[in-house]
Amino acid sequence: MTWLVWRQHRNQTYLAAAALAAFAVLVLITGRQMASQYHSALTSCAASHTCGNLANTLILGTPVLSLLVTLTVVVPCLLGVFWGGPLVAREFETGTSQFAWMQSITRSRWLAVKVGWALLAAAAWGGAVSALVTWWSSPVNALNHQNFQPGQFDIQGIVPVGYALFAVALGIAAGTLLRRTLPALAVTIGVFTFLRLVIGQDLRSHYLTAVTTPFSFLHAPPSPKGSYWLVSGGVVGPAGQVANSHAHGGPGVSFGGVPVPIDNMPSACRVLVFQSPLKFGSCLAAHGYRGFITYQPASRYWAFQGIETGIFVLLAAALIAVTAIAVTRRDA
């Protein structure tokens, strides 16, 4: 059966390998340049004792390259569309499932081998792209500490492997249930994008209870160590927490990254907003207002990677189970 799977998909595999190789060459060359650029900047700033400010003065990589790396976020979806969707649907469309199922092989084995290789390939390609991006990003991560932020979190570490497995499983399941390739592709793109957005925006920040740190407006908000993820921030007044103005559409200002709803601030302070942030802060402090930040510490990065990967792997497993039931129970 493996022989057949290889014979059916080898051209696709060669193509994907070529694309991966091209990407790898690009990433390896520019990644080395970036790493040496970062290290020489570190050496020279250490000599002049200006390393604290390095993140503001040093720009690593080029915008085009950063964009390209950011775009690898779509790789799992592409794998789902090109490998997952047609895997079974195409066989139904051309009737070759009937050819295969009338050889001396059970449908479950036919499916297991096909799905097994597809998932393995998904994990391999997803993992390879992610490994390259993670390696390429290491100087940027060390400099900007942004790898826990949405966007960067999604293209580094092990989560892309989870996404790729899920996307391919989703494509396979959609193709099996719909029996047609094109609708399966549409469903794959739609469901994958929807779930990624929902999980990334609404669920991820709750994997572990976020840490809340209060601060005085006399100073800048605290900056936790390393690549933390700032989930939210806000203002606590004498009467308790002040509603964030974006909740009801009012204007807000950013106090060192923490949103301050000016409509809900004492009027005496409001006029100071445009004069000086320092005076504005002192005024708020004098009126008994304090700020707070809610964040996920950098130490939880891998825990979050693990949890998110686990969620998508479980979803993938459920989809494969549905596929197996459909293939063995339904008529050909």
């Binding site: 051309t94 050819f99 199922w101 009338m102």
Partner: peptide, 22 residues
């Protein structure tokens, strides 16, 4: 769906499905 049974049966569907690119 049993290899021993399937080995005894030959079936050619109306559309004559074969892998077109093989």
């Amino acid at each position: 769906q049993d290899p021993a049974f399937l080995a005894e049966i030959g079936f050619v569907a109306q559309e004559i499905p074969l892998y077109r690119r093989l």
